[in-house]
Simulated assay, not measured.
Amino acid sequence: MNSQWENFLKNLGNWQGFFTEFSPQEERIREIPSHLTLESLNQDQTVSLTLK
């Protein structure tokens, strides 16, 4: 069985999508485009998150 960290490392790479903002009444206000990069550092001991 893999540890949570090992499973998390499977998500390294580039991610493109949207963050969605909702009102307190759960109405969609807007979608914000996003581009994220998860990169392994220090022989998988650290992960860097970059927002572009």
Score class of each variant (00 low, 15 high):
residue 1 M to F: 06
residue 1 M to T: 11
residue 2 N to P: 15
residue 2 N to I: 10
residue 2 N to C: 10
residue 3 S to F: 00
residue 3 S to C: 00
residue 4 Q to D: 12
residue 4 Q to N: 09
residue 5 W to R: 02
residue 6 E to H: 03
residue 7 N to Y: 08
residue 7 N to T: 14
residue 7 N to D: 09
residue 8 F to E: 00
residue 9 L to G: 01
residue 9 L to Y: 01
residue 10 K to E: 11
residue 11 N to F: 04
residue 11 N to W: 07
residue 12 L to E: 01
residue 13 G to V: 02
residue 13 G to N: 00
residue 14 N to H: 10
residue 15 W to E: 02
residue 15 W to L: 00
residue 16 Q to M: 02
residue 16 Q to R: 12
residue 17 G to H: 00
residue 19 F to W: 11
residue 19 F to V: 11
residue 19 F to Q: 12
residue 20 T to R: 04
residue 21 E to C: 03
residue 21 E to T: 11
residue 22 F to E: 06
residue 23 S to T: 11
residue 25 Q to R: 08
residue 25 Q to F: 05
residue 26 E to S: 09
residue 26 E to A: 04
residue 26 E to I: 04
residue 27 E to D: 12
residue 27 E to G: 05
residue 28 R to W: 04
residue 28 R to G: 00
residue 29 I to H: 00
residue 29 I to Q: 03
residue 29 I to F: 02
residue 31 E to P: 03
residue 31 E to D: 15
residue 31 E to A: 11
residue 31 E to N: 10
residue 32 I to S: 05
residue 33 P to R: 08
residue 34 S to A: 13
residue 36 L to Q: 12
residue 37 T to F: 09
residue 38 L to W: 13
residue 38 L to D: 04
residue 39 E to M: 14
residue 39 E to R: 15
residue 39 E to P: 13
residue 39 E to Y: 12
residue 40 S to H: 09
residue 40 S to F: 10
residue 41 L to G: 08
residue 41 L to A: 15
residue 41 L to K: 15
residue 41 L to I: 12
residue 42 N to E: 15
residue 42 N to I: 08
residue 42 N to W: 07
residue 43 Q to D: 13
residue 43 Q to R: 10
residue 44 D to F: 06
residue 44 D to T: 07
residue 45 Q to Y: 06
residue 45 Q to H: 11
residue 45 Q to A: 12
residue 46 T to S: 13
residue 47 V to L: 03
residue 47 V to W: 00
residue 47 V to F: 01
residue 47 V to P: 02
residue 48 S to H: 13
residue 49 L to H: 08
residue 49 L to R: 06
residue 50 T to F: 09
residue 52 K to S: 14
residue 52 K to M: 13
